[in-house]
């Protein structure tokens, strides 16, 4: 039996010197992909589910409008509100906001601006249609109803 005696000379520890490298790689991946949120969303956001999603072609042309019930009903009430950047705006101010957003773009890209509407599912169509009328007025006619890929249908 002694013939098969295990050699104990080799160490059985896993070398961990490469661990930091692996962790750093993961770290860099997440650092690069992270987009720090520049605006704090103050309205409820449960996006609807849909199947026919399209990806946006150019991110720089997109401006976001958030619509939904305010998260702080004691301060802002329970009626759905429109949030642009950091503030709540009225439907009448949408044209002004669109023009401000257009000013941030290059001149030849201004008519390609896309408005991404991030609307809570519980919102009623009234306010959304008001916003759409204003967007038509402001000539920002490309819109995107942000939604999540639905997996249970199809």
């Amino acid at each position: 039996m002694s013939k098969f005696k295990k050699k104990t000379a080799t160490s059985q520890e896993i070398p961990t010197s490469a661990l930091p490298d692996i962790i750093f790689m993961l770290l860099f991946f997440f650092m690069v992909t992270t987009v720090l949120r520049e605006t704090e969303i103050k309205v409820e956001q449960t996006l609807p589910k849909a199947t026919q999603l399209r990806k946006l072609e150019k991110k720089s042309l997109v401006s976001h409008l958030y619509i939904g019930k305010p998260k702080q009903p004691e301060v802002y009430g329970t009626e759905p509100k429109i949030q642009a950047n950091d503030v709540f705006i009225n439907p009448d101010d949408v044209v002004l906001w669109v023009n401000q957003e257009k000013d941030k773009l290059f001149e030849d890209e201004r008519d390609q601006i896309t408005i991404s509407l991030k609307v809570d599912v519980e919102t009623k169509m009234g306010i959304i249609s008001d916003v759409q009328q204003e967007l038509r007025e402001a000539n920002a006619r490309k819109i995107l109803y942000a939604s999540i890929k639905s997996v249970d249908r199809e």
Partner: peptide, 26 residues
């Protein structure tokens, strides 16, 4: 590195720029 990794993991929101596209009439 782990600590930093966990921080970024938690704060990451993978941007969801997908949705139903629509062109409004003029």
């Amino acid at each position: 590195a782990f600590l930093l990794l966990i921080f970024f993991l938690v704060t990451t929101t993978i941007a969801t720029n997908k949705g139903l596209m629509l062109q409004l009439p003029p």
